[in-house]
C-alpha cells in the first residue's frame, strides 16, 4: 500500500516538472537540446527572476513558442538571441554578452583578484625586508628547531 502511494506521488511530481517543456515536438534531438539550453539562458521579462523555461507567465509562453518556431525554421543561436535582444534588451540574457558595457562585469572579478594578489605581495614583501630574521621561511633558529621537532613527532606515528 505504502509503495503504491509512493508511486502515485512520484507520478505527480514528474508531470509537474516537465509540463513547461514537453509540449513541443522537435524535428531532431539536437534542436530539443538547444531549446532547453536557450530556454534556460533567456530571462523572462515579466517575472525577472525566472528563465523562460521555468516561468508560467503568458509572455514566457510566447517566447518559448517563438524560440521553438525559430529553431525549427533553422535559425542559429545568435539569430535567436539577437531576436530576443532587439525586442526585450540585454536584460533577457542571463549570460551577458561581451561589450564595452559588460567588460567590468566579465573582467572585474579577475582584476580584483590580481589587485588583491599584488597588494598581498607588496605588503608581505615590505614586511620581510623590514624583518631581521630574513630567511626564506621567515622563522628564527629557535622557531625552526621547534618546528622540526614537532614535524618529527608526527612522523613517528
Amino acid at each position: 500500500m505504502l509503495r503504491y502511494c509512493f508511486a502515485v506521488l512520484l507520478l505527480c511530481i514528474s508531470s509537474v516538472s516537465y509540463s513547461a517543456i514537453d509540449t513541443y515536438e522537435f524535428s531532431d534531438e539536437a534542436n530539443r537540446a538547444r531549446f532547453q539550453v536557450l530556454a534556460a539562458e533567456l530571462r523572462c521579462p515579466k517575472c525577472q527572476n525566472q528563465n523562460i523555461a521555468d516561468s508560467n507567465s503568458p509572455i514566457a509562453e510566447d517566447l518559448r513558442f517563438e524560440l521553438h518556431r525559430m529553431l525549427e525554421t533553422g535559425a542559429d543561436d545568435d539569430q535567436i538571441v539577437d531576436f530576443m535582444v532587439t525586442r526585450y534588451g540585454e536584460f533577457v540574457l542571463y549570460r551577458p554578452r561581451m561589450s564595452a558595457q559588460t567588460y567590468l562585469l566579465w573582467y572585474g572579478p579577475a582584476a580584483l583578484l590580481i589587485l588583491g594578489i599584488v597588494v598581498v605581495l607588496v605588503v608581505s614583501g615590505k614586511r620581510k625586508s623590514g624583518n631581521k630574521k630574513d630567511s626564506a621561511t621567515g622563522l628564527s633558529e629557535q622557531e625552526k628547531q621547534r618546528l622540526d621537532h614537532l614535524l618529527k613527532q608526527d612522523q613517528d606515528k
Binding site: 521579462p45 525577472q48 535582444v85 532587439t86 525586442r87 526585450y88 534588451g89 540585454e90 536584460f91
Partner: peptide
C-alpha cells in the same frame, strides 16, 4: 524601479 526594463526600441 526594478520592474520596468529600458526598452531597446
Amino acid at each position: 524601479d526594478t520592474q520596468s526594463i529600458p526598452s531597446p526600441l
